[in-house]
């Protein structure tokens, strides 16, 4: 049973209470993340900057260096966590995550090709996005040949395409000059060092989250099986198309900016299920907020742990996520036994 589950788990009053506290936690993570980094800036300094009463150096570090990175990190983490939720119901598989269908592989191959050809900055982002779209399109077309579209077929098609991309990535790494390998590896592990603030991120998130909330109850049904959902009044094909393209758009947008940041998309949805239950009306918005929080905290640590050197954030998401998840999983199993 979820850790914070009251007697009747679905009434909306409790829903808004949960959303309120999670939003508070996300806001707190945001501020804490602004405070993490190689320059030592205290909580009071951050408040001073945000209220516009600070000296210019702190102001510059916070507003021009950290704020764009934390903003983007919040959105990217939210996108990955939500894409993970969506993939898990589409494929009806708890092991599914945003990259399982090869979206990150396609993005990586194109990004690495851009790095090898000496391109930089937005060109790398652009080619990563193109690669992600190509992979999404390939999997969609290949699993649509014939007329049935079932989770197992999408999963197998995606996994095979993904394996193909992996081989291509290994090939590129093997033949690339050593001075480019460092950048390539950081890209593959997921890195937020070069992100810029973009007004597209909140728009993409909102454009996917709002219709998803309308479909949330239908998604609860889809999670119990196609036939069951159809029998209880869900237009299954339409919902599956929506989920496929919504999660693809989220993943492509996230991967384009941060590379293949692992773990958030797999673990955050499960974490939220353990804490608050599987109702997608709670699961989706809470995953977005917690995914964002976990990523900005991890990125803050990536910037400060061995400062002035930086670690790829993907390493930190796993280092934080693995113990957090294992502890919660043990707690739940323990509760079920007693």
């Amino acid at each position: 049973m979820p850790v914070f589950s009251p007697a009747v788990p679905v009434l909306s009053g409790r829903y808004f209470l949960v959303l309120f506290f999670v939003a508070l936690f996300a806001a707190l993570s945001f501020v804490v993340a602004l405070g993490l980094g190689s320059a030592d800036i205290s909580f009071n300094d951050i408040v001073a900057v945000l209220t516009g009463t600070s000296d210019s150096l702190n102001q510059q570090i916070i507003l021009q260096i950290r704020l764009p990175r934390v903003q983007t990190g919040m959105c990217v983490g939210g996108m990955l966590a939500m894409a993970g939720c969506l993939m898990q119901i589409l494929l009806r598989n708890p092991l599914a995550e945003p990259y399982v269908l090869g979206v990150s592989g396609g993005a990586a191959v194109f990004a690495l090709l851009a790095i090898v050809s000496g391109l930089s900055g937005l060109w790398i982002n652009g080619s990563a996005f193109a690669g992600a779209l190509l992979s999404i399109f390939l999997v969609f077309v290949l699993s649509r040949i014939g007329n049935d579209w079932n989770p197992l077929r999408i999963l197998l098609t995606g996994v095979v395409i993904s394996a193909g991309w992996s081989a291509f990535i290994s090939f590129l790494l093997a033949v690339s000059p050593p001075d480019q390998l460092h950048g390539m590896l950081f890209w593959l592990m997921g890195d937020l060092s070069y992100v810029q603030s973009s007004f597209w991120n909140p728009i993409v998130l909102a454009v996917v989250l709002l219709p998803s909330l309308v479909y949330a109850r239908s998604m609860n049904l889809l999670a119990t099986g196609d036939l069951n959902a159809a029998a209880l009044g869900v237009n299954v094909t339409r919902l599956q198309y929506f989920i496929y393209f919504a999660s693809s758009l989220l993943t492509a947008t996230a991967v384009m900016q941060g590379g293949s940041i692992g773990f958030i998309g797999l673990v955050v949805p499960h974490l939220v299920r353990i804490l608050f239950g599987s109702d997608h009306r709670i699961l989706l918005p809470v995953s977005v907020m917690l995914g964002g929080s976990l990523l900005v905290i991890a990125d803050g640590l990536a910037r400060s742990l061995i400062a002035p050197e930086q670690l790829p954030v993907g390493v930190l998401t796993a280092m934080l996520g693995v113990p957090l998840f294992l502890v919660l999983l043990q707690t739940i199993l323990f509760r079920q036994r007693t």
Partner: peptide, 25 residues
């Protein structure tokens, strides 16, 4: 089949889905 955790009450409530509008609780 049950892939994801859900309580007995939550599961029965699915039977009310056809009677509820998309936004309704």
């Amino acid at each position: 089949q049950d892939t994801f955790p859900s309580t007995v009450l939550e599961t029965v409530l699915m039977g009310r889905h056809p009677y509820l509008s998309e936004w309704a609780w």
